[in-house]
Design a binder for these strands. Structure first.
Lengths: 328, 328
DNA sequence: CTGAAAGCGCTTACAG
DNA sequence: CTGAAAGCGCTTACAG
């Protein structure tokens, strides 16, 4: 028997090769309904031989399984939306979907404009939605409209499972490392306040400072290198005797390092610096940081949406590992 | 008349509202076949009122229009594949596709393993393919199998249109700027030799050197910062009197700057440095470079694939602008 | 110029 | 446990 030439194998090809009707083939492949073990085996084997993957367009038409996964990014302004973090997550999602013949779409949501949520809910071609940087407000809107088709990379809700890195754990290990290596005047450069993850790290920071009997010193940043540089300047002005700066992301930490260098302040000699994310450039710059397995997180979130479970899956929290380099 | 509640508007909703059959509605919307001007107007209006976008799953089933666009990245090894350049292009593609209810998939192709090309050709859910970093070999395989559904970000072929940045122009303007500002011993740090774009820039480099009566000095890199650092070391060893280094990408240029700084060599004082891409970090680092409108390029390429023209569209070449900063 | 009918590839009640 | 039939939303010959 030869491969079909004109197009990809269809369920009719599989059924014919297995000697059953397409109804039976469909049931055998989906696992739903009763099918004799013998038939299941023949169908599965035929499907493998033909490299059969159900046509998602046809399936989407009859069920509501969808042909695409929407990656929805929440951002106050459209231009701040698509940073390296987002594009890495998108690439991971697109890689996970490709073998299933499912596509991904990228959509921006600005706070207060949640009309698109209703559109996704109505759209049978939307398999599901992966939220990035979501807010409590958006989650509330989703709970009402899209039950069971949404996963959040970030905070979750009663109905929306969360898949994320252990922000607190990452902050704990970096800060404890600083304390253990003798630092006593440790400042933190935060992310934007509207992002829930910012608060998790700030809380961890306060916990460690209290635990060690140290005074908290908080300066706000916005995850850019420029804001890190500005924050370092602020820190040095307010607390000239500072001996460590912990930034909530590597981009800001690199800004901190640049500002220190520009002022002739040595690192780690005078001021230790630690970041978070372990971006490729961090290794190059000798930045001590903690890993952020963005690809694993996005892959897991996307897989959850593809599986379309009936019950809310458990939250998933990925660990972060401290990476010691020169800067701290 | 009220909006349909259960799902997105279908062509039957549009037809009913316009008072025609769904056949006529379909023809009016596609522009194919004869429809009275009056009917066209009513149908178009109804579609607008209902925010109608044809269900791509249904359309893909009957035509071969597809539900997804494949972004195919050619890379010698899987791990070098997904850099910032790729993910930016992917994000742009996913943004362009989203309003059309089309998804994108990310697939890696390693040289010599072109089976996936045949799979895409057979797959009616594949609207088209956007190639990134393609090689002549892959283009040859595609010419035979996927006529009319492929666009290349990079080199094109007789059947595959190319959409790309003007690499030569970018190299010309950076190098001429170096020459004009008095530099005479100018080295180039290249990209990997297997990438066609590397050769375009090298050729431009040789042209400018010849034109200015200067000796060419070529060192190979691989687009990483680490390779830039190593290349700078090589350059300084082989040509201690060097006064400028042009790197084919910003990541490498940043590596060059780091190596110079580590050796106490001032920039631009002793050695001017220029890169290419204008990544966000370049502005922060004060790197002179030239713009690379990746998002515009990827959007244009994706739009071309979505339109699925019958005839090969013209090649598209995007200009690059010199951005003068501190380093040169 | 228009509408009724067929069919794309699937899944799922409905009979047997 | 199995198969024939209906139908998801579209487009496109086929008649009129």
């Amino acid at each position: 028997m030869s491969m079909p030439v004109r197009g990809a194998a269809t369920i009719v090809d599989v059924a014919r090769r297995a000697g059953v009707s397409k109804s039976t083939a469909s049931r055998a492949l989906s696992g739903a309904g009763h099918v004799s073990p013998d038939a299941v085996q023949r169908v599965v084997r035929a499907a493998q031989q033909l490299s059969y993957v159900a046509n998602p367009a046809a399936r989407a038409l009859v069920t509501s399984s969808g042909t695409r996964v929407v990656i929805a990014v929440v951002a106050p302004k459209p231009d701040v939306a698509v940073d390296h973090y987002i594009t890495r997550a998108l690439a991971a999602a697109a890689s996970v979907c490709a073998p299933e013949r499912i596509g991904v779409g990228l959509e921006l949501v600005t706070p207060g404009h949640f009309e698109s949520v209703a559109a996704w809910a109505r759209d049978s071609t939307v398999q599901g939605v992966v939220l990035i940087n979501t807010t409590e407000q958006l989650l509330a809107a989703i709970d009402r409209q899209l039950p069971g088709r949404v996963v959040s990379i970030g905070v979750g809700s009663r109905l929306v499972p969360s898949v994320d890195v252990d922000n607190s754990g990452a902050a704990f290990s970096s800060l404890r490392h600083l304390v253990r290596s003798g630092r006593r005047r440790i400042a933190i450069v935060t992310g934007p306040v509207w992002m829930p993850c910012t608060h998790r790290s700030i809380r961890a920071y306060h916990d460690v400072m209290r635990e060690a009997g140290l005074k908290p010193r908080v300066v706000q940043g916005d995850f850019t290198s420029e804001s890190g540089r500005a924050a370092a300047a602020t820190v040095l002005r307010r607390w000239p005797d500072i001996d460590a700066i912990f930034a909530m992301c590597d981009a800001s930490a690199l800004g901190v390092l640049a500002e220190l260098r520009a002022r002739g302040i040595s690192s780690p000699g005078d001021v230790a610096v630690a970041g978070f994310d372990d971006i490729p450039f961090a290794a190059f710059a000798g930045l001590t940081t903690a890993t952020h397995p963005v690809e694993m997180i996005a892959s897991a979130a996307t897989r959850t949406v593809l599986e379309a479970r009936l019950h809310r899956p458990d939250d998933l929290m990925f660990g972060s590992e401290l990476v010691l380099r020169e800067s701290a």
